[in-house]
């Protein structure tokens, strides 16, 4: 079987090893005998995201975000929305996650509209929230997630989305309400870099399975993999002394 992964703005939106997420998805599909069609979708690329089973959008520096913003809103929004309605999976990290929300409120000036795909909004914050994160994810059956966060925006969730996880260490969405990330249908937004998927195979497989089911049009059972190396890296972050808050 084949699954199609669209990597949005691979050159402009790639912070803290976000590219590792795409590598992880590709390998974990291949180890299970699935072929991966990887589409790198840049500025002005007319690729129809409705064709993709999984869409990935990484984080970016402010300048990169400004550069892709219009293209995302004007050229990609409609096909991205259609893909989600048809059940495709989406993973968006940090700046990419913020862009999927309703709007971004800067310290000064007008609100900037987002895609509105997630019922969430982001406000500018003063201090950057930086460090390791350990969080527990009810939507993933209570699996722990580990990663590295570095953001100044504070994201607040609305009624229409579920938090991806509750932080045990680190700041998460806003440093106040203990939530981290958001889930709605097949869309997952998170602040976790790391890259997040290689160290959190539960999240990788959750997304992969949705993508495969989208392609196959029926439930898919993922065969188990030898995740010893993944678990070792995961545990190493789980038990880091003190953290760096």
């Amino acid at each position: 079987m084949q699954v199609c992964i669209a990597h949005l703005y691979p050159e402009l939106m790639n912070l803290y090893g976000d590219r590792g997420n795409v590598i992880a998805l590709e390998r974990r599909a291949a180890w299970r005998g699935w072929e991966v069609e990887m589409r790198r979708v840049g500025l002005g690329d007319p690729f129809d995201l409705g064709e993709a089973d999984l869409i990935f959008l990484g984080g970016g520096e402010d300048r990169s975000q400004q550069l892709i913003f219009r293209d995302l809103l004007e050229e990609k929004a409609a096909s991205l929305r259609r893909a989600v309605e048809q059940g495709a999976a989406v993973l968006a990290i940090c700046g990419g996650y913020q862009l999927l929300g309703r709007h971004y409120r800067p310290a000064q000036g007008d609100e900037i509209p987002g895609l509105g795909l997630l019922d969430a909004h982001t406000e500018a914050g003063e201090r950057r929230l930086i460090g390791d994160v350990v969080a527990e994810s009810p939507p993933l059956g209570g699996a722990t997630l580990v990663g590295f966060e570095n953001h100044s925006g504070r994201t607040f969730l609305g009624e229409g989305v579920t938090p991806l996880a509750r932080v045990r260490a680190g700041f998460g969405n806003n440093g106040e309400d203990g939530t981290e990330g958001a889930v709605w249908r097949g869309v997952v937004g998170t602040y976790l870099h790391g890259a997040v998927l290689p160290k959190n195979p539960a999240l990788a497989d959750y997304l992969l399975r949705r993508a495969m089911e989208h392609r196959a049009g029926r439930p898919v059972e993922l065969s188990p993999l030898d995740d010893a190396a993944e678990e070792r890296a995961h545990r190493a972050l789980l038990h880091r002394p003190g953290g760096r808050r």
Binding site: I23, A24, R27, P198, K199, A229, E230, R232, A236
Partner: peptide, 13 residues
């Protein structure tokens, strides 16, 4: 961070 290094190598094939 040996474990992270080893994991990266695994995903590099």
């Amino acid at each position: 961070r040996a474990a992270d290094m080893a994991l990266r190598l695994k995903y590099a094939g």
